[in-house]
Amino acid sequence: MDDRKGSITMSSLLQLTLSALKKRLADRPSIQIQQESGYVTEVRFLFNAPALEWELVKFEETNQLFLPKDYKEFLLMHNGAKLFIDEKSGASFEVLSISEIQEDHQSLDYPEGWYPIAYGLESSVLVMNLNEINPHKRSNEYLFWLEPGESIEHATPLSMNFEIFLERFIISQGVEYWNWPAYKARHFYKANDLED
């Protein structure tokens, strides 16, 4: 029997993912990662203090919505975070706090039920569509990726929730894995200007 499958039933995928990452960071301020095209660098992670339950209740009441179960769990662990902070390139992935989400939603005029929750490279945005979620289930697919300058109608559906997104993002060492095309080998070399 695979012990990993049994452990997910005792802890959420979110808890397992963050716990494993924090173990890797326990005795050092940064970790070395390898990304696409052989890029190797040291990265840091900063996790905010937990959100308070009343802050989440106020957000839900003010906006007349329910936050997804897994995302709410993250906010109660860390009310925002900076992930894969790369001093060499200046890049990072910023998960917004609940107050930043509210501010950005109002100032950027998102449609009803759509909220920015994180910023990636070059002002790309991870957004959630809360219009059709079940607040009692973890299996909602509410995340979308919005490239700079695109309208919300052109956001790319990621077909996942936050805890799955975060686990895969950490496993892929901070790269935009959802943009990886399913190339055949010959197409990969051509698309990346590599010698075949």
Rank of each mutant, 00 (worst) to 15 (best):
L13R: 15
I133L: 02
F93C: 00
K137E: 11
V175M: 12
K5G: 14
E141R: 10
Y177V: 02
L67P: 03
Y119V: 05
N140K: 03
A182I: 14
M77V: 01
K190T: 06
F144N: 02
V95E: 06
F144L: 00
Q173M: 13
W180T: 12
R168C: 01
Y142N: 01
T41A: 10
T41V: 14
N192P: 01
V95R: 09
L158V: 09
K23W: 10
G113H: 03
V127R: 03
L108Q: 15
V43F: 08
S30I: 05
N129K: 02
D70R: 08
L76H: 07
I152T: 14
E112W: 07
P29H: 12
S12E: 00
S92H: 13
S89N: 09
V95P: 13
F144S: 05
T62E: 14
E132W: 03
K137N: 12
G80W: 01
E163L: 06
T41Q: 10
L121H: 08
D193Q: 13
I33G: 04
G149F: 04
V127C: 10
V57A: 06
V127M: 05
N63I: 04
L83I: 08
G120I: 01
L13T: 08
F47P: 09
Q102I: 04
L121F: 08
E94K: 12
G174K: 03
Y177K: 02
T9H: 11
R28C: 13
G113D: 03
E42W: 11
H105N: 02
L52H: 05
G113I: 01
A51T: 06
Y183N: 07
L65C: 11
V125F: 04
L83M: 12
S99W: 14
A81G: 03
R44M: 10
I133R: 00
L194D: 10
V125K: 07
N140W: 01
E150M: 07
F74S: 12
R186P: 10
Q106L: 15
S89D: 08
R186M: 12
N161I: 09
K137Q: 13
V95D: 11
T156C: 06
Q15C: 12
V175W: 05
F169P: 06
A155W: 05
R44A: 12
A91Y: 15
L75I: 08
K72S: 11
L108D: 09
S107E: 15
Q32W: 04
P68H: 06
W178K: 03
D193N: 13
E36A: 13
E122W: 03
Q106W: 09
G149H: 08
P148I: 07
E100Y: 09
L52Y: 10
F169D: 00
W114Y: 14
D2I: 10
L143D: 04
W180C: 12
F162M: 08
L166R: 04
L130C: 00
P181F: 01
F45T: 03
S11R: 13
F59T: 07
K5P: 12
P135L: 07
P148K: 10
L166I: 06
E53L: 12
N179L: 12
R24T: 06
N131A: 06
Q32G: 09
E147W: 00
V127H: 00
Q15T: 15
W54M: 09
H105T: 07
G149C: 05
T9K: 15
S124I: 00
M160E: 11
R168T: 08
E55N: 02
E36T: 08
L83H: 10
V95K: 13
T62Q: 13
S7R: 15
I117D: 06
S172G: 13
Q64N: 11
D2R: 14
D27W: 07
